[in-house]
């Protein structure tokens, strides 16, 4: 017989593990990836591949040669970062090498410099994305035209595409009213037949993934609902004040990165508050900041910045928002 094991109680463990959580998040990202491949063709696949492979590779290199610790690439977290980074860039051929730089920043600076998974204060994918947005503004805002359901030519790289938010920003800046602009219909927006970063276009695909995560209890409803809800209400108020300069709330939440950000990036466990009350404040802040940046900032989109700003508040929220103690 073997030696008896001894440890403190409990002697059982649920079957959940970090690895399982990360792979489930990856699975939840697949619908959005498929939609991106449908609309942007092979480029979307290539950009995602490069992003994921370089994220995993950089993590392995850093762990092996700099930190000299056992590798953790199989926990799937680098793949999540890679996919989310790819989802946040346009699916063009020129992004192939740029996204690799983004991966280095995301993994190297955004994650490993703090000690790896669980220790980073900011969402690594967003750190990479914002770095690229500032460093490569032209490439990062050159959107591919959206193909038909299945693009006839495999490499679509025309520069004529634009995001709905970009059209509005430019139009409003030039003094046009929103109703006079040529915007895609709501159903097109919902299905994702619009220009934009490759992962954010289809609200439907993102919702499918989010519902899966909710069912598996990997995310809770608090952050997505307050994020989208506060963005909806705040933009609705603005729209009621002046529908000519402010976009209607439904289009607001369906375009740009709000859906992707609210369901997958703001809900990142590591960088969001733990208590439910903290999560409500976090989501609220994200929603308000997004609308503020969109309407009064110089960038047409503000989800990344909003989440990063709220990430920096997370430690404070963790300190401030305590769970309710028993009998208190």
């Amino acid at each position: 017989m073997n030696l008896l094991n001894v440890s403190g109680s409990p002697h059982v463990h649920s079957d959940e593990s970090t690895k399982q959580i990360m792979w489930r998040v990856n699975l939840a990202l697949v619908p959005a990836l498929l939609v991106a491949i449908c609309f942007f063709g092979v480029n979307a696949l290539l950009v995602s591949l490069v992003s994921v492979v370089s994220c995993v590779l950089f993590q392995w290199l850093i762990e092996k040669f700099i930190l000299k610790q056992p590798t953790t690439i199989w926990d799937g977290s680098a793949i999540v970062t890679g996919l989310l980074l790819a989802f946040n860039v346009p699916a063009t051929a020129s992004m192939l090498w740029i996204v690799a730089i983004g991966a280095l920043v995301a993994i190297g600076i955004g994650k490993m410099s703090f000690g790896g998974l669980g220790k980073n204060p900011f969402n690594p994918a967003l750190v990479g994305r914002v770095f690229l947005l500032i460093s490569f503004p032209v490439q990062m805002t050159t959107w591919p035209t959206v193909g038909k359901w299945f693009p006839t030519q495999l490499m679509t790289d025309a520069n004529s595409g634009a995001t709905p938010l970009g059209i509005i920003k430019e139009g409003v800046m030039n003094g046009q009213s929103i109703s006079s602009l040529n915007l895609p219909s709501l159903s097109e927006i919902f299905l994702g037949h619009i220009g934009g970063s490759m992962g954010e276009i289809s609200a439907l695909a993102i919702l499918i993934g989010a519902i899966y995560l909710l069912c598996k209890k990997i995310i809770s409803w608090h952050i997505p609902v307050t994020f989208i809800g506060s963005a909806f209400i705040f933009s609705g108020i603005l729209w009621l004040i002046n529908p000519e300069t402010y976009l209607d709330p439904l289009t607001t939440i369906l375009t740009g990165g709000i859906m992707l950000g609210a369901c997958f990036m703001a809900t990142d466990m590591v960088t969001s508050p733990m208590a439910k009350s903290g999560q409500l404040i976090f989501g609220l802040g994200c929603g308000l900041l997004t609308i503020i940046i969109r309407n009064w900032g110089s960038y047409p989109e503000g989800v990344s910045f909003a989440i990063l700003i709220m990430n920096s508040v997370t430690p404070l929220l963790n300190r401030w928002c305590k769970p309710k103690r028993f009998a208190c």
Binding site: N2, L3, L4, N5, V6, S7, G8
Partner: peptide, 19 residues
């Protein structure tokens, strides 16, 4: 004379309270 296999927190102070 190893008679069991300790599988908990690596802390003598804690192990001492167990066995």
């Amino acid at each position: 004379n190893r008679r069991s296999n300790y599988d908990g927190l690596q802390s003598c102070a804690f192990q001492n309270t167990l066995y």
